[in-house]
Amino acid sequence: MRYAFWPGCVSRGGCPELYPAALAVAEKVGLDLVELDQATCTGAGVIGERSEELVDALNARTFAMAEQLGLDTIMTICSTCQGVMSSVNYRLRENPAYREKINGHLRDEGLSYKGTVRVTHMMWALVEELGLEKLANLVTHPLRGVKVAPFYGCYILRPRYVLGFDEHPHRREYLERIIEVLGAEAVDYSGKWRCCGFPIMTINESNGLRMVANHTLEAKQKGAHVLVTPCPLCHLNLDEFQPRAAGQAGRPINLPVLHLPQLIGAAIGFNAKVLGLRRHIVSTEPFIQMTGIPRG
């Protein structure tokens, strides 16, 4: 399985532990990644506030680069990158006349998007292309006794019509399936499909912090030892801002937040160092101890 790979900005910026963990897991499970090193930020929903056409052009440029490499699927490790790319792709594939207009903006660079690319996220690729059975076979350190709260992130759930849910109606249950294949137990709570609050942190911090506190406290109350997310922006908010959210809520939280590749990596034999587990704000020590994975 060969993919054009877009790691996103945050996996190398605000969450530098994600990129190496994702690469390690991809290699071990056999996802062959060709990194798009000249691709740009997808716009993360923010540049679209200035100009939707610009966002469409930036992402069409990335899609065209994947086509040039002869690859038909772009894989991301960020719910948000995936979501922006999927909506742009939806607009460009639905409407060839509009696609041509956007291609007009790319002509200077000698690029043109033909509309053949499919966008996926590592979480989807693992379930739909690798298959959970294969993943199960790679588990050497089953995460027995660990209760994990799934947290998806908005853009990997909504809006369903741009995200291929017609074809894959169970995409909003994949985290639970992966958690169980790894030998851990999935915790059910109402926050799992909601918003982490990241996009309003610079605008209305107290609302964002309230979201962080609500979801993490609810997950804890339902018994979660850790929370796992396929979105580095959710990770930034739920981990980095958790102490401040706890301050605002007036009670301690201390719920470790893992990136999906870290959780998988722990079960398939990587040590805490490779996975960057000690580069978090909320200590992941309880998880390391519970699972007994090597520290490295």
């Binding site: 900005c9 945050v10 910026g13 605000g14 000249q38 691709a39 740009t40 930020c41 716009g43 993360a44 923010v46 540049i47 506030e49 200035r50 610009l54 930036l58 610079t202 605008i203």
Partner: peptide
């Protein structure tokens, strides 16, 4: 703050192609 955030975000990506937090 929202408008400044949106403008700053666009400026940074315009300059370097990537986001710099």
């Amino acid at each position: 703050r929202g408008a400044r955030h949106a403008s700053a975000f666009a400026e940074i990506v315009k300059e370097s192609g990537r986001l710099d937090e």
